[in-house]
């Protein structure tokens, strides 16, 4: 098992290195740079060249990449030309906002999704199954931006129970913070929750028809014990796989939702920085997202091994 985890970490580091390179490369390929933005209409070839030299933009791509990479090891992600602040400082502040929201959405979608999925599978073909499946199908097909707007009209404009948009730090006003977060969190969670319901339902149904569940029933165990001890653990593998992917999807969703509800998180920062040609910030955002996804996948991979002894063994041998 240790060997397996070490191997996975090694692979993750390698992927991370590739991510840094690609995130640097992408911004390189986009036409226009910070100089165009900073100088705007005042640009003359001389001024531009001088500014490029001071920002190191005149050096070859590969040299700049290694300079940036070297900075990363020291915790220095460069300086934002737009905010005139260190990228690390900006990101840490924004990340906290995004993480809080994303984490809440992840917990809600996982816990509620698995519970509803199990209820649905156990009552297959019954009233609760039909009801849950119906809403899960709707939840999967609704785009987040549309649902967000719908929620604003309904709960904020018409019913006036929740604030339209905005963000307050929890240390300043916790109650307002909570009220402001309700809609964004739900809107982010709906899609993930729906796919979790469907995945859990099909995984549990698949497992229930296995021979070893028949054996468990033949042993005389109660249905509840069968479900918890024999079914759920076996159904966990496809659920975990989905969970790993959800984290990526949630991150993508956050970008949209933060813009709808005017939340100053990383999603908004990313979008604004792309328009501002604030390359160092964009690179930082992409890098952070890459790290989060890689860590999520690493955790999922490692937990596979804990759940299923067969995976543990294959991974140890191969």
């Amino acid at each position: 098992m240790t060997q397996y985890i070490v191997k996975k970490i090694f692979q993750a580091l390698l992927v991370l290195l590739i991510v840094t390179f690609i995130s640097y490369l992408i911004m390189e390929l986009i036409p226009g740079d910070a100089v165009d933005f900073l100088l705007g209409l005042e640009a003359t070839p001389e001024k531009a060249a001088a500014l490029r030299a001071s920002l190191n933009l005149d050096k070859p791509f590969i040299v700049r990449y290694f300079m940036w990479l070297g900075g990363l090891f020291r915790g220095d992600m460069g300086t934002s030309i737009f905010y005139n602040d260190s990228v690390t400082n900006i990101l840490v502040k924004k990340l906290l906002v995004t993480f809080r929201m994303g984490f809440a959405a992840l917990i809600i979608s996982t816990v509620v999704g698995i519970t509803l999925g199990v209820v649905s599978a156990v009552n297959r073909g019954g009233f609760w199954d039909n009801l849950i499946s119906f809403f899960a199908n709707i939840g999967i097909s609704i785009p987040a931006f549309w649902l967000g707007i719908l929620f604003i009209i309904l709960f904020a404009v018409k019913m006036k129970v929740l604030p339209v948009q905005g963000y307050t730090d929890p240390s300043a006003d916790f109650w307002l913070h909570t009220k402001q977060m309700v809609m964004p969190v739900i809107v982010t969670a709906v899609g993930a929750l729906s796919s979790m319901v469907r995945q859990t339902r099909s995984a549990v149904l698949e497992t229930i028809s296995q021979d070893y569940v028949r054996t468990a029933r033949e042993k005389g165990l109660r249905e509840r014990a069968i479900l918890i001890k024999h079914v759920l653990r076996n159904a966990l593998i496809p659920i975990l796989t989905l969970l790993g992917m959800q984290i990526r999807v949630l991150f993508g969703g956050v970008v949209i939702v933060e813009n709808i509800f005017a939340i100053p998180g990383m999603g908004r920062l990313l979008v604004n920085s792309v328009f501002n040609r604030d390359i160092t910030v964009v690179q930082g955002c992409i890098l952070i997202m890459g790290i989060v996804v890689i860590i999520a996948n690493l955790l999922v991979d490692v937990s596979y091994g804990f759940v299923d002894p067969r995976i543990r063994e294959i991974k140890d041998v191969a």
Partner: peptide
């Protein structure tokens, strides 16, 4: 079931819980 009357099935490999 499983106490006084017990059953053995056809597929031994899949009749045991793999985890």
């Amino acid at each position: 079931r499983g106490g006084k009357i017990a059953m053995i099935f056809q597929e031994p490999m899949t009749s045991l819980n793999p985890v």
